[in-house]
């Protein structure tokens, strides 16, 4: 970590000696031990590890979906432990976008309604929601599918809807957990291209959790996690 793309000011996210464990006593399982990590604005970071390495636990902590048992996490210099639940909810809603391995699309709703869910939760008025939702769908070439049921789409289209949902709130940072895990390699590549294009063109910070070394290699920085510890953190050549 010799150079950072945006070294000025506090990092977007700073993890300090994070530990997370489950159970207690002799049965205690350490999912994450003493992990420190800075994520700066505009970076693309791959968190790489095998299944059970603790990479998903690390992402959940960074994404404010879980709280550490030890250590602290700072969001733009502010300790998230001191933020109340409402501020945490608002941060996830407005600052972060999420792309999960599974699509988590509501089959009873239209594509557009699925996409604007973060705006609905934020309390944005309906016409404004529709306008922004349609704009994002258009960017991703999905505008003609806006009225379709979300279930009536192919895997690649579904993942594109998920990316639209992650983008609609104009987040600073997108967390992608195995974004191509459910797709065939051709579709997976298309989805990857879209994610990295957003990163390059809009400067959105990207945190990708994956066990796929090829996907990891497309990120500028790779953080390898093994048995709950960071074993290497290096800058590579972004593809």
């Amino acid at each position: 970590m010799k150079t950072s793309p945006a070294a000025q000011g506090p990092p977007l996210l700073r993890a300090r000696s994070l530990s997370r464990w489950y159970g207690s006593g002799a049965d205690r399982f350490h999912a994450l031990t003493d992990v420190s990590l800075d994520i700066h604005r505009g970076e693309s970071v791959a968190v790489v590890g095998k299944s059970g390495s603790g990479k998903s636990t690390l992402m959940h902590l960074l994404a404010l979906l879980d709280a550490p048992d030890q250590g602290s996490l700072l969001l733009e210099g502010a300790d998230v432990a001191t933020l109340d639940r409402r501020r945490l909810d608002a941060a996830r809603n407005q600052r972060f976008g999420f792309v999960f391995q599974q699509f988590f699309l509501n089959p009873a709703q239209s594509v557009l309604e699925n996409v604007v869910l973060p705006l609905t939760i934020a309390g944005v008025a309906r016409p404004e929601r529709h306008r922004r939702g349609m704009a994002v769908l258009e960017q991703l070439g999905m505008a003609d599918k806006a009225r379709n049921r979300a279930t009536a789409l192919s895997g690649g289209q579904k993942q594109r809807v998920v990316i639209a949902r992650a983008l609609v709130g104009e987040p600073d940072l997108i967390f992608a957990d195995e974004p191509t895990g459910n797709l065939d390699s051709a579709t997976g590549t298309v989805v990857e291209d879209e994610l990295f294009a957003l990163h390059r063109e809009r400067g959105i910070t990207l945190v990708v959790v994956t066990h796929d070394e090829d996907l990891a290699a497309r990120c500028r920085r790779q953080v390898h996690v093994h048995d709950g510890r960071i074993v290497s953190d290096r800058l590579g050549d972004a593809a």
Partner: peptide, 16 residues
């Protein structure tokens, strides 16, 4: 469960 989880992850409050 998953739908609820997603809504909460995307910032929906417990109260809502």
């Amino acid at each position: 469960t998953r739908e609820i989880g997603l809504m909460k992850a995307l910032g929906m409050s417990n109260g809502r």
